[in-house]
Write a protein that binds this DNA or RNA. Structure first.
Lengths: 156, 156
DNA sequence: CGCAAATCATCTCCTGTCAAACGATTGGAG
DNA sequence: CTCCAATCGTTTGACAGGAGATGATTTGCG
């Protein structure tokens, strides 16, 4: 054999591409990990955690919600949601009012401060997405979005 | 408004689709989480961890490797690779021989036992993939694979 | 009414992952 | 050769995430 298979000494092994091509699940996970890291870095710079951002965005879009609803719709575990709301409340971006209809649940409500913070954070999202997905053309991003949507069963 | 926006009482809020459509990064992460969970469940049934499977597969494909090389090509942190190789070695599926050329590194080598175990585990992979990605047609899976490959920079 | 089951938020514990530090070993500069 | 930086494998500690238990409250049903 020309390209010997001894102890894989200093060979510029590029096994990963093969793996990614054969194992769609692995490709998906590795891509996600890379993007998630980028998102966390971006969020750290911005000073607003990814989860916190999503919560503010949803509250702004659909109005006051219970933590339960936030958890389900954002796909964030409820025990994690507690901490996110703690931080947002402490920062004054949300209020936790008891829901008079059902005092087990809160009615988490976004404040003006929260709306301002959200608006501020929103401005940097497009640039972040542009950067994180820059190997893909806008059309390809659309395709990816559609495929993931189908996989997640959101369109059903 | 017809669909009131009070306290989002018992409304079948479906905010997630909107989120997934706007935030490609979130869609990617959530899809990955779901698939990763399915993969872990499958691996648990099979009795061979995902990482262990990948290591055996790579060793079988490219020959003996250092843990370093395995880590880099499989995108698994080196400190995690230690445990994976520990388990595989204890199960008799790999041997850790010191590389005489560089005694800092190992030459991790797959054994016959490992090859048999790998062959056994491989048989259930297609069915797993079929199940995990069943919302997508074969053609769409191909598209997704291509897009992820491009995003991961494997083709470059 | 009174009680059982369910629900919401919270807390605790367990698991897996990553960063950083460490010993052993190697390669290179002087 | 000698010393210094780099590399490989390993260990440790920190941290996020998820499963399950708990307390408060509500709902359903007799």
């Amino acid at each position: 054999m020309a390209t010997t298979t001894r102890t894989a000494e200093r060979m510029r092994v590029t096994y990963f591409p093969r793996l990614a091509a054969e194992r769609l699940d692995i490709a998906l996970c590795r891509a996600s990990a890379a993007v998630a890291r980028a998102a966390d870095d971006h969020a750290a710079e911005e000073g607003l955690g990814v989860g916190q951002h999503l919560v503010l965005q949803m509250l702004d879009a659909v109005g006051p919600c219970s933590q339960q609803t936030l958890s389900e719709e954002l796909r964030i575990d409820r025990s994690v949601m507690v901490g996110i709301c703690d931080d947002l409340e402490q920062a004054g971006h949300v209020r936790r009012e008891r829901n008079p209809r059902d005092r087990r649940s809160y009615a988490v409500t976004i404040t003006d401060s929260g709306r301002r913070r959200l608006a501020e954070a929103q401005t940097s999202i497009p640039a972040f997405l542009e950067d994180a997905f820059n190997p893909l053309t806008p059309e390809e991003r659309g395709q990816l979005s559609a495929l993931l949507g189908k996989l997640l069963g959101t369109g059903a």
